[in-house]
Amino acid sequence: MRLEPVASRTMARTLGLPALALAGTVVVASLLAMLAGANPFATLGLILKGAAGSKFALLETLNRATPLIFTGLAVAVAFRAKLWNIGAEAQLYAGALVTVLIGTKLGLSGPVAIPIMGVGAVIAGALMLLVPVILKVRLGVDEVVTTLLFNFIMLLFISMLLEGPLKDPMGMGWPKSEALDRDMRLPRIVEGLRLHWGFALGLIAAVLVWILQSRTTLGFEIRAVGLNPNAARFAGIPIRAVLLKTALLSGGLAALAGYSEVAGLKGNLTLDLSPGFGYTGIIVAMLALLHPLGVVVSAIFVAGVFVGTDSMSRAAEVPTYIADMALATALLFMVLAILLTNFRIVRG
């Protein structure tokens, strides 16, 4: 048995295999629910109801999807150029840290601070990824290792700051930063509910990334470097420059997740600001087949699984870890679907 490249991919093969991957995920999730002692059909109904069964549930799903859109875009942009950014979590926290520093230390007014915090967050995230990429292009250091290690370094650095110079003196001992003033927060889209304008910013970012990738010279260069770096080099494309630009874009997008969580939702910086949004962004990007607009759909789907499973676990008394296992299964099935989209199994 060996793999052979597919000469021409049909629409049925391109769309059908990912659809089968999602269907297989539903089957596996149902079996897991059954093993946990619940009715699988009732469990799926509870998940759908918890994720989109009411206005509150739907908006909460969109709220949970907001940081996943940014981290999913960050991963999709980097992976398109074969730049394996595993450090979106570090870039997210870098963006959140700069947001808090600008919002609480510079004495700016709200309307002025909101865009400055966003720009500062983007710059911080871009620089966070730029270092591993410089090590890659200059010294050949594997970016998978460096970006992954940066996640732990950044978390330890944030922990040190929250126990020291950034600790809120009015926080009753809890390791958290001072809160942003109310007029520095991103406005709510629906008054009284948690969905904020960070979600709209995520949609705009997805459209802009799609335009960049499909309509600009840089987008063509990113795709060329990702598909065949040797051919891209022969065609005169500056591979190092393209990778550095990709790093700046990817890191900045991931940092916007931290900005939106602080300025739009939490109001301050804590060590548990992200429950793994950076890592989940990899799943989001892979489920979307690295397409920027698909990232929005994928992020909402993944967020719906988390929100719906949380609701289902309370109603059906089954573990919430089913959601984690379902997403892991979805990623494995999607990777297999992508493989079989581009290759076929032949005997010999």
Rank of each mutant, 00 (worst) to 15 (best):
V6I: 15
S8C: 05
S8M: 10
T10W: 04
T10Y: 02
T10N: 13
A12M: 08
R13Y: 09
A38R: 01
P40F: 02
F41G: 00
K49T: 14
G53M: 07
S54W: 10
A57I: 01
A57D: 15
L58G: 10
E60P: 00
L62Q: 06
N63F: 05
F70P: 04
T71R: 11
L73H: 10
L73K: 09
V77M: 14
A81Q: 08
L83C: 07
A90G: 13
A96E: 10
I102A: 01
I102W: 04
G103N: 05
K105I: 00
L106S: 03
A113T: 05
G120P: 10
I123W: 11
L130S: 04
P132Q: 05
L135D: 10
V137K: 07
V141I: 15
E143W: 08
V144A: 08
T147R: 10
T147G: 09
F152Q: 12
L155G: 14
L155W: 11
F157S: 09
M160L: 10
L161E: 12
L162V: 09
P165D: 11
P175A: 00
K176M: 14
S177D: 07
R182Q: 06
V190W: 04
E191K: 13
R194P: 07
H196D: 06
F199K: 02
I204N: 04
I204G: 06
A205S: 14
A206M: 03
L208F: 04
W210H: 13
I211K: 09
S214G: 03
G219T: 12
F220G: 01
I222T: 07
V225L: 07
G226R: 09
L227N: 14
N230P: 00
R233C: 03
A235Y: 13
A235R: 15
I239G: 06
R240I: 00
L243W: 02
L244E: 03
L249W: 06
S250G: 12
G251Q: 11
G252T: 12
G258W: 01
S260Q: 13
E261V: 07
V262I: 11
K266F: 01
F277C: 08
V284L: 00
P292G: 12
G294W: 09
G294A: 09
V295P: 13
I300G: 05
F301S: 01
V302W: 05
V305Q: 11
M312G: 11
R314L: 15
E317Q: 14
A323Y: 08
D324V: 02
M325Q: 00
A328Q: 02
L336T: 15
L339E: 04
F343P: 06
G348P: 11
